[in-house]
Amino acid sequence: MSTSTSNSLLVPATDLERFAVDCLVAAGASRERAEMTAQVLTRTETFGIHSHGLKNLGGYIEKARRGALDLDAEPVALVDGPAFALLDGRNGLGMVSGVTAVRTAIEKARVFGVAIVVVRRSTHYGAAGMYALMAAEAGMIGITASNVDPNMTVPGARGKVIGNNPLAYALPAGETHRPVMFDVALSAVASLKVVKARDEGSSVPEGWIVDGSGRPTTDPSRYPDEGAMMPMAAHKGYGLALLVDALTGVLADAPTSDQVPSWLFDMDRPNDVSHVFVVVDPALLGGAAPYADRVDGFLDRLHGVPLADGSDEVLHPGQLEWRHHDRAVSDGVPLPDDVRASLEALAAAVGVPAPWEGRAD
């Protein structure tokens, strides 16, 4: 999930968040919706997940300019039960739908122990793990997934068949460890990483994509117009992607991933994706504090296993991202060149100065 940024510009997270808020407000979002979105995207940057952070803000604003995204839409409940809800995102910002939904699920789980909230008519919600982490930081188990546009092939098929439908979970931990966080696309790699390689004119590792004939290739130059992502672990990634569609588009009576347009490559059309959020309160089965302590003990045992030759340590899911986060909070968020260029273009488009404008590198 993380990107090496040792030579990148360092910017305080608070400055980046303020810049994102100002850009969204200038483009027509209310301050409340702007702050909700900026917080998610900036936090994503602190974890080193640059492909799903502030780099995409300009794309959301451009999509709104073309009438395919409502920057100020507020999700509304279509179904509101004691431990479940179906929300209509109203073609608004995916971060607003995501935060609203996970907060709703947390509130319901506090009362009933477990809750599920599904969102329809939403837009790309960035890094799924950020929402699962919100539940974990509330002392609960968080699971979330989203369907996306068809960008992945499946065994035996040629071309794009299904979305690589991201899936994430997070677990609360005790006094020793930070919350566990796991966030993956169900393709061999996130599609935005293939797009980045294409833009840089570089090749991709074998096993990431297939060409227009369905044959494995390392050349991303024609993606996404031609070819497709490969599923993670062949039929296993395919099967999990289908499950995500069943819990999002099918459950919400909304488009499945083979029917939704891309938020990025179909700028003139609403994204129309669906998300699901499941939150479980460990107090349901013996108490939140003992659960967190047991997670700590489990992680301690994982870290204490014998190491392979040449290995320095065993990491648990999310541990590397927390290290990125702590450095970013202490020293500033490292912005890769492509993220900086994207934010400078956005600054010029909406008339908001970039946080580093006039600053010597």
Rank of each mutant, 00 (worst) to 15 (best):
T3Q: 14
T5V: 14
S6H: 14
N7I: 01
N7E: 15
S8G: 10
P12C: 09
P12W: 08
D15A: 15
L16T: 08
L16Q: 08
V25Q: 09
A26Q: 13
G28H: 08
G28C: 09
G28V: 11
A34F: 06
A38T: 05
T42P: 12
T42N: 09
T46H: 04
F47M: 03
N56R: 14
L57K: 04
G58A: 11
G58S: 08
I61Q: 10
A64I: 05
E74R: 13
P75S: 08
A77I: 10
V79N: 05
L86T: 04
D88Q: 03
R90N: 11
M95K: 00
G98V: 08
V99W: 03
A105M: 07
G113K: 02
G113N: 07
I116D: 10
V118R: 02
V118W: 03
V118P: 05
V119D: 05
R121Q: 13
S122T: 11
A128Y: 01
G129H: 06
A138W: 07
I141H: 02
G142M: 02
I143M: 08
I143G: 00
A145I: 01
S146R: 01
N151A: 12
G156W: 05
R158C: 13
V161L: 00
P166R: 02
L167M: 12
A173T: 12
E175T: 12
R178D: 12
R178S: 04
M181H: 10
D183A: 07
V184S: 03
L186V: 07
L186E: 02
S187P: 08
A190Y: 03
L192G: 12
K193F: 07
K193N: 04
K193G: 06
V195H: 12
A197P: 11
R198S: 13
D199W: 00
E200D: 14
G201L: 02
S202K: 14
P205H: 03
E206K: 10
W208P: 07
W208A: 11
I209M: 13
D211I: 05
T218W: 01
G227C: 09
G227L: 05
M229N: 05
M230N: 02
A233N: 13
A234F: 15
H235W: 13
L243K: 00
A246I: 13
L247K: 05
V250T: 14
A252E: 06
L264H: 11
D266K: 10
N271R: 03
V278G: 04
P290F: 04
R294A: 15
G297A: 13
F298H: 04
D300T: 14
R301K: 12
L307K: 09
L307Q: 11
D312P: 01
E313C: 08
V314I: 15
P317A: 12
G318H: 01
G318P: 05
L320S: 15
W322Y: 15
H325E: 13
R327C: 00
R327W: 01
A328R: 06
V329C: 06
D331R: 14
P334K: 08
D338H: 15
A341D: 15
L343A: 10
L343S: 11
E344I: 01
E344C: 06
V350G: 09
P353M: 10
P355H: 05
W356I: 08
A360V: 15
D361R: 15
